[in-house]
């Protein structure tokens, strides 16, 4: 084990914002559904955490064509396409093949990460600042996110609870949410009907979308988070559910699995904002 999950103070847990988000997503993974997970990294970690702890039978595909693998833990530091990541899949296929599985409606959930998201769940992974021709900072591009967010029935999108992430207007819409939010907006541009973003998950909160207006709605708060704190970290004001769900805090067991087996060495998950909470209550400690 690389490092103990228990913090210095007795009865506390320390973790990063990414680890918290991974745990929040792992809590909502359903074993009887199929998932299309984007590349390696935090979205895949979340699915693997659920698979490792409580949903061993959950099926997922990855872009490069592995179908329902049972990875060997600990995963290698470079897990993308590695033999341990694709171990004991039921099939090794190709990108066109798994994208077709999504086009046919077999993928219940897409699981993705976003740089920036707007109130209708449209998101950016292309550039930040400046213009398309003269970007301040260019990023990798949509990767597989566009096809996943378009074709899976429901999309789960992870991002950080920061004002620069929840924006009025995206610098670039790489992948579709509910577009302008009007009825039939996705169908009008050729996307399969009945699809769209379902949850947005951050370290502090969980959001859904209104069935009519398609606006983002705050539905849950992490034990340590406050409504005011979350709203302060958003450019736009989301709808707010009448009753906010109190989400579970990460457990010591979950953090140990992330650190020792899923992302050994903390290559991806140890970077970020650290927080320490009381292990029993999930409230901020210290």
């Amino acid at each position: 084990m690389s490092e103990p999950a228990v913090g210095k103070a007795e009865g506390t847990l320390s973790f990063t914002d990414i680890e918290a988000t991974i745990c929040h997503i792992a809590h909502i993974i359903e074993e009887d559904k199929l998932y299309f997970v984007q590349m390696a990294g935090a979205p895949l970690f979340a699915l693997l955490l659920a698979k490792r702890l409580r949903a061993p039978g959950v099926g997922y595909v990855v872009e490069e064509g592995a179908v329902a693998p049972n990875p060997i833990f600990p995963l290698p530091r470079m897990m993308l396409g590695a033999s341990r990541s694709h171990y004991r899949a039921v099939a090794w296929t190709s990108m066109n093949m798994v994208d077709a599985h999504a086009a046919l409606g077999f993928m219940d959930y897409g699981l993705l990460a976003a740089l920036q998201i707007d109130q209708f769940g449209n998101f950016n992974s292309t550039f930040i600042g400046g213009t398309y021709d003269h970007p301040e900072r260019r990023f990798g591009g949509p990767g597989g996110a566009n096809e996943i967010a378009s074709q899976c029935w429901r999309t789960l999108i992870m991002t950080k609870q920061q004002k620069r992430k929840f924006v009025h207007k995206l610098d670039f819409m790489s992948s579709p949410g509910y577009l302008d939010g009007t009825p039939g907006a996705r169908e009008r541009v050729g996307l399969p009907s009945g699809t769209g973003p379902y949850r947005v998950i951050t370290e502090d909160a969980m959001f859904g979308f209104d069935d009519e207006t398609r606006q983002m709605r705050l539905i849950g708060l992490a034990p340590w988070a406050t409504l005011e704190g979350v709203l302060a970290e958003m450019e736009f004001e989301p709808l707010i559910a009448d009753k906010l769900e109190r989400m579970k805090a990460p457990s010591e067991e979950e953090l140990n699995i992330i650190r020792a087996e899923i992302d050994p060495g903390g290559f991806s998950t140890s970077r970020g904002k650290w927080m320490t909470v009381d292990a029993a209550t999930g409230l901020r400690a210290g």
Binding site: E63, D99, T126, N146, L170, L191
Partner: peptide, 29 residues
């Protein structure tokens, strides 16, 4: 996107000029 480029190769491999697909629409991409 990754899928769109793989799909364009699929179209090429079928000897046709284009293929229809269910994504990309509506975005800046």
């Amino acid at each position: 996107s990754n899928g769109a480029l793989a799909y364009r190769l699929l179209a090429g491999s079928l000897g046709v000029p284009y293929l229809p697909m269910r994504y990309l629409g509506g975005t800046d991409t």
